[in-house]
Every structure is written in C-alpha cells, then in structure tokens.
C-alpha cells in the first residue's frame, strides 16, 4: 500500500510539566488511513499519554506530530476536533444525561461557540446510535447503563463527531467476553467504512483479534512495531511484558498464554 500516513509521529519526546522522567522517548509512528492500530504494552508504558499528545492536550518537548500531513500545531482547535475523536477509558458523568443528549455532545466540533445543536445534529446522533445497534437506548439515563452499554455509548458519541480518526483508550478493559467481542467487531467495522482506528490495550489477544498494525511499548519507548503477524511473537511479547508467556497457533489464528511452567 502506498497511502500517505493520516497520522504520524516523528521522534517525539515528552515529560510532564512537573515530572522528572520522560514518559515518551523518541516515539516515531506512522498510521495509514482505514487501518486498525493497537498500541500494546504493560501498565505505565505511556500508552494513554501517547493518545493525549495526539489529541494536542499536551505539546511534545521534542519531535513533531502530523495529522493529515500537516503539523498538529497548524490545525485550529476546532479543526482538529473534526479530525480526531477520543473515547476515554471511562467517563464519569455526574448528572443524569439521557443517552441521546450525551451522544449529541459529539456534535460540538461542528458548532460555533454559542451555537446550539440543530435537527441535523440530532439526526447525526441518532445515526451513530443506529450504527452501533443501540438506538433503543436513546432515552435511557447514561448512569443507569451496564458496563458494555456505557462503552458503546461512549463510542457512539465519538462516532457522532464524524471524524476520520478515532482514538480509544483501553476500550475493552472492563468488559466481559461478549461485550469485548461486540466492541472489537465494531472497531473492525468502523475501519471497513474508512475510519482510522488507534486503540491502546494491555491485552495482546485484543490486538490479535482486530488489529492490522501493532506497536509494542514499554517504559515510554517503542520496542517493536509493524504488522500484527510480525510483532506479536513469543519473543517480542515476552520482552515487552517482561514475563514468561507463549504465543501458540490455534485454528489459523494465535493465542497468548501466560507461561506458568517452572523456569
């Protein structure tokens, strides 16, 4: 494929304002449009920070991030929010918004500062709910949803934003198997419609299930990156997680098992 990357990082370094250690060190990454990309690594590897930098929440101290071929800093806030949507790891909502009202918030990038959403925005929000198969939740309170439904609603809000790039922070972390499957299938489907998906996870099986490309991170550095088949191997994963594990071929795919055999 010869597509230009829709999103790229070039030698990015980042330290939090009052931190002493560089949370991201020399990160370079190219993401092609319409692909599913997994950022994989143990807790504290810097995965969420990476997403925050791509959003523009913090500027990197060194290096450059480009979105759609232009530097991140060349985009206005509003323009950037029409390019990249975020599904946070969890969203605590202290007020009892209805699902449709919450999903409608995804339309904000398409509105001016004091503009209210109109009928077209409501239609876009309903479309997002339908696309995710949760149109029946529209009038429910967000606070009364189950974990799986809640995650779907968060994704619906990002889908209603109608951006080419979708970032997800640990989208399957607290879900049971059926809901994991539902979310992962959905991500695949969104990529099929041309969206570029980048998600973080600490679970290699999640990456194996849906990702085209994979990045292995540890302690702020990228250890390996490339197509899933090349990257998710026993050797490379063991190095990333620093714990004995094995990647086994099963029925044409692969599974990751922790290795409890005596060393």
């Amino acid at each position: 494929m010869t597509h230009h990357p829709i999103l790229s990082l070039h030698n990015v370094w980042f330290t939090y304002p009052n931190g002493s250690r560089a949370v991201l060190q020399d990160i370079s990454l190219e993401v092609r449009p319409g692909t599913v990309n997994a950022v994989l690594g143990p807790n504290g590897a810097g995965k969420s920070t990476l997403l925050h930098l791509i959003l523009g929440l913090y500027p990197p101290q060194r290096g450059e991030i480009r979105v759609g071929g232009r530097p991140l800093t060349a985009h206005s806030r509003q323009h950037l929010s029409r390019q990249i949507a975020l599904v946070p790891q969890r969203e605590h909502i202290p007020f009892e918004f209805r699902v449709l009202e919450y999903v409608l918030l995804g339309r904000t990038p398409h509105l001016d500062f004091l503009q209210m959403p109109g009928p077209e925005d409501v239609r876009a929000a309903r479309r997002a709910l339908e696309q995710l198969g949760i149109a029946d939740l529209a009038d429910r309170r967000v606070s009364a949803l189950s974990g799986g439904e809640h995650q779907l609603v968060l994704i619906a809000r990002a889908v209603a934003q109608e951006t080419p790039i979708l970032l997800l922070d640990e989208p399957t972390a607290h879900l049971d198997l059926a809901n994991q499957r539902r979310i992962l299938t959905l991500l695949r489907g969104l990529a099929g419609q041309g969206k570029t998906v980048l998600f973080t996870t600490h679970d290699p099986d999640t990456a194996l299930a849906v990702a085209d490309e994979c990045v292995l991170m540890r302690a702020g550095r990228i250890l390996h990156q490339g197509p899933v088949a090349d990257v998710l191997t026993t050797e490379k994963l063991t190095q990333t997680y620093e714990t004995p594990l094995r990647v086994l071929p099963v029925d044409g795919t692969r599974v990751v098992l922790l290795d409890f055999a005596p060393q």
């Binding site: 959003l55 523009g56 929010s81 975020l86 946070p88 909502i93 904000t108 990038p109």
Partner: peptide, 12 residues
Amino acid sequence: SLEEETAFSLGA
C-alpha cells in the same frame, strides 16, 4: 461538565 480530556477532544 465532561471530563477534561473529553471536553478538550470536542474542541473546547
């Protein structure tokens, strides 16, 4: 009223 990062990602 959303979390900081979400409000930011919506262009606020």
